[in-house]
């Protein structure tokens, strides 16, 4: 019997790590990877809650299913966008894509 707090602790660590990755990574694909890590952290928390709160509860599973589906869509679109960006800019490092800001003030 694993206590719920163990799952939650794991989830928090995963989430924080994913967050850290989102904040620090420069490559778009790696940012997507970090986002997936965060989503999985949420999934772990959901699934553990669902397992703890009894046989008659499946709400956690529902959320996990929805998250997985959305993540699939997100990954598909993300891949298409990355390919498009890569073809147009020959670049996938987001810190070198300055369409949103001032070029010389990057760092």
């Amino acid at each position: 019997m694993i206590p719920l707090s163990y799952f939650l602790g794991l989830s928090v660590l995963m989430f924080s790590a994913g967050l850290f990755g989102v904040l620090t990574q420069r490559n778009a694909v790696r940012i997507l990877v970090s986002v997936e890590i965060m989503l999985n952290a949420a999934n772990v928390a959901m699934a553990s809650f669902n397992g703890v709160f009894g046989l008659e509860h499946v709400e956690g599973w529902s959320f996990v299913i929805i998250i997985i589906a959305v993540a699939a869509a997100e990954a598909a679109i993300g891949m298409a966008i990355f390919l498009s960006v890569f073809r147009n800019h020959n670049e996938i490092i987001v810190s070198d894509l300055f369409s949103l800001g001032e070029t010389e003030e990057a760092y």
């Binding site: 989102v22 904040l23 620090t24 990574q25 420069r26 940012i31 987001v94 810190s95 894509l97 300055f98 369409s99 949103l100 800001g101 001032e102 070029t103 003030e105 990057a106 760092y107």
Partner: peptide, 10 residues
């Protein structure tokens, strides 16, 4: 504030 407006998503 300009320092915040870097254009970097992260």
């Amino acid at each position: 504030l300009r320092l915040f407006q870097t254009g970097l998503v992260s």
